[in-house]
């Protein structure tokens, strides 16, 4: 129990929340400040360069490279690169696709994975151990090892569509929205995160609710899910980042421009003569949603990553 408490403190501290213990002050010196500042420039300047360059015409970007002006929004500043982006690629469509795909993956993922973890932690049934083992086994296998067989397999899967008011079976998921969403809904790591969190909620809560006549789904929905807020935040953030950043899979599985997500859209900018200004504008455009989310929920983001690491 002591180790679990210590671990939670670690997550809390990594997320910037206060912990009673006093951390090692070893690097709180002036030299430490210099090193930290240099590192902040190292990590921050390239991103700043991207934001600033997206506002400048190409000739000015190159003219500014040899001076600190490269990182400053000075000179001929305009949104012309952004106008160019929307003129050359269907950027709104890509953004709308990515927002829709990410939102659906997050919502379905939170529901399905928390429900599975609920059954695995709080209910008694035969086969529980087997299912748990299978889920844990999937954790160590990277997606890239079965992406190509999955591509072949997805091309064979059935899907029900309605044509002329009548249901009709079609085969092959390639080039669709569902191929970008459904394979990523059930996630062993999300189940694992919920599993760890739900294990810390006392069982007496369910038992009391059972006596009061609540059914299992009601216990899940009204008691456990509301108490699992931090786990939901972690799962939602990690699922969102994953879905928004998808590149390899939609690159292979989606051909229609109308269905493509934002990351695959970068390909358009490499095809013709490379115009760096518009490319930086597109890069900024598809980064801003995530950056805004990160800066608004910084603690939750960093806390999610930290809690993803504290398994034994």
């Amino acid at each position: 129990m002591a180790t679990i408490t210590a671990t939670r403190d670690g997550v809390r501290q990594a997320a910037g929340q206060p912990v009673r213990r006093r951390p090692d002050r070893g690097f709180g010196t002036a030299g430490g400040h210099v090193v930290r500042t240099v590192l902040a420039l190292f990590f921050g300047l390239p991103i700043l360069f991207m934001l600033v360059s997206s506002l400048k015409p190409d000739d000015q970007i190159f003219a500014d490279l040899s001076s600190p002006r490269a990182f400053l929004p000075v000179g001929d500043i305009s949104l012309a690169n952004y106008a160019e982006v929307f003129r050359t690629v269907p950027a709104w469509r890509f953004l709308a696709n990515s927002i829709g795909i990410s939102a659906l993956t997050v919502v379905l993922g939170v529901l399905i994975n928390s429900l599975a973890a609920f059954a695995l932690t709080r209910m008694r049934w035969r086969g529980r151990g087997l299912v748990l083992t299978l889920i844990i086994a999937t954790l160590v296998v990277p997606f890239e090892t079965f992406a190509l067989p999955l591509l072949w397999w997805a091309n064979k899967l059935p899907w029900l569509v309605v044509q002329d008011g009548r249901p009709l079976w079609t085969f092959g998921w390639l080039d669709s929205y569902q191929v970008q969403i459904i394979p990523f809904v059930a996630n062993a790591f999300s189940i694992y995160l919920y599993y760890s969190y739900l294990s810390t909620i006392p069982k007496e809560l369910d038992e009391a609710a059972r006596i009061d006549g609540a059914n299992w789904f009601r216990i899940y929905r009204s008691i456990i899910l509301p108490l699992a807020g931090p786990a939901t935040a972690t799962v939602a953030i990690l699922t969102f980042l994953n879905a928004w950043n998808q590149f390899l899979w939609p690159l292979m599985s989606v051909q229609s421009e109308d269905l493509r997500p934002v990351m695959v859209g970068v390909q358009y900018f490499f095809q013709l003569d490379v115009a760096w200004g518009p490319m930086m504008a597109y890069a900024t455009l598809i980064t801003i949603p995530v950056l805004v989310l990160f800066l608004s929920f910084q603690r939750a983001f960093i806390g999610s990553i930290a809690s993803s690491g504290v398994k034994g």
Binding site: I112, A116, R124, W125, R128, T138, L150, A186, N215, W216
Partner: peptide, 26 residues
């Protein structure tokens, strides 16, 4: 209870089988 629990894990298990185990074995 066992019936309900299996119903709760079914969506996740079916999806993991379809989109992880089958392609991995394939």
């Amino acid at each position: 209870e066992a019936r309900t629990a299996r119903a709760f894990v079914t969506p996740a298990v079916v999806l993991l089988i379809t989109f992880f185990f089958v392609p991995a074995l394939l």
